[in-house]
């Protein structure tokens, strides 16, 4: 299965991400401070924490989406396989193609068909594929996103004709199609039913050999099921968010060092 992902890029390998001392501002408001996190190649890292603590913001710094917000600024360093994504030689479009993203709100291209949506990334980044490769890619990516059976007879429908949860899975398929080396997922399952959620989690496990996954989730069971490592974010009142604790998922959930982590993972908090 995982070889499908590397269809377009046979030498494809998961890449490691390293965030060093990352701080973020919106205007003068500091929302993240001094975040250090190592996201090793082929590992699934879960970001957990209460609403508003900066998980999405941190995720968006990892593929340079943060800078698209007017007034957003950033300090620190983010490396992909040791190369700085902000100051290094990699063009920003390559950074974003190699580090894919599934957004908190589904954002399919409404005017494109379901099939076109899946391969939109190829067109956007100028990759050429044959007809057969394209068809194969559409099927395999939609299957991995747990959407194939629902849409295989309506591939020509516009993307906007799908339900919210279907749109979200379409967006997951779309981001898989460009064979990213890292995939950032911002609450990908928050709009999904249990079956689809299971399918996505299964896909995350399958692709994690070739894709490094960073996932934001509010679902503690999900974090435990899919992730190898876990980082707990927390923002005290009127203070920027920080990583309180970070480590192997098993440790974070069974034996956390910080009492606040303990409270949060056991549902006694925020």
């Amino acid at each position: 299965m995982s070889s499908d992902i590397a269809l377009l890029d046979p030498g494809h390998k998961a890449a490691g991400l390293t965030a060093t001392n990352v701080s973020c501002w919106f205007g003068t408001k500091k929302v993240l401070e001094g975040v250090n996190l190592d996201m090793a190649p082929g590992q699934v890292t879960a970001l957990i924490g209460p609403s508003g603590c900066g998980k999405s913001t941190f995720l968006r710094t990892l593929n340079r989406m943060h800078e698209l917000v007017p007034s957003a600024t950033l300090a620190g360093e983010i490396l992909i396989d040791g190369v700085d994504i902000y100051r290094g030689a990699i063009p920003v479009t390559d950074v974003r193609r190699r580090i894919g993203m599934v957004f908190q709100k589904p954002n399919p291209f409404p005017a494109m068909t379901v099939a076109e949506n899946v391969v939109a990334g190829l067109k956007l980044s100028g990759m050429k594929v044959t007809r057969a490769e394209r068809d194969h890619l559409i099927e395999s990516c939609l299957t991995k996103a747990g959407l194939w059976n629902e849409v295989k007879n309506r591939l020509g429908d516009p993307g906007r004709a799908l339900s919210g949860g279907q749109q979200q899975r379409l967006c997951i398929a779309r981001s898989l199609a460009v064979s990213p080396q890292v995939l950032l997922m911002d609450e990908p399952c928050s709009a999904l039913d249990p079956t689809s959620t299971r399918r996505i989690e299964q896909t995350i496990s399958e692709i994690s050999e070739t894709v490094t996954v960073v996932i934001v989730t509010h679902n503690m069971q999900q974090a435990q099921r899919v992730s190898h490592r876990c980082a707990f974010f927390l923002a005290a009142e009127n203070e920027p968010g920080r990583i309180i604790e970070e480590g192997a998922t098993r440790e974070i959930f069974s034996n956390p060092v910080d009492p606040r982590t303990n409270d949060y993972v056991n549902g006694r908090f925020g």
Partner: peptide, 13 residues
């Protein structure tokens, strides 16, 4: 904005 970001996140120019 969501669609714009979606396109950019796929490596779009």
């Amino acid at each position: 904005a969501g669609e714009r970001e979606g396109a950019m996140a796929l490596g779009g120019t």
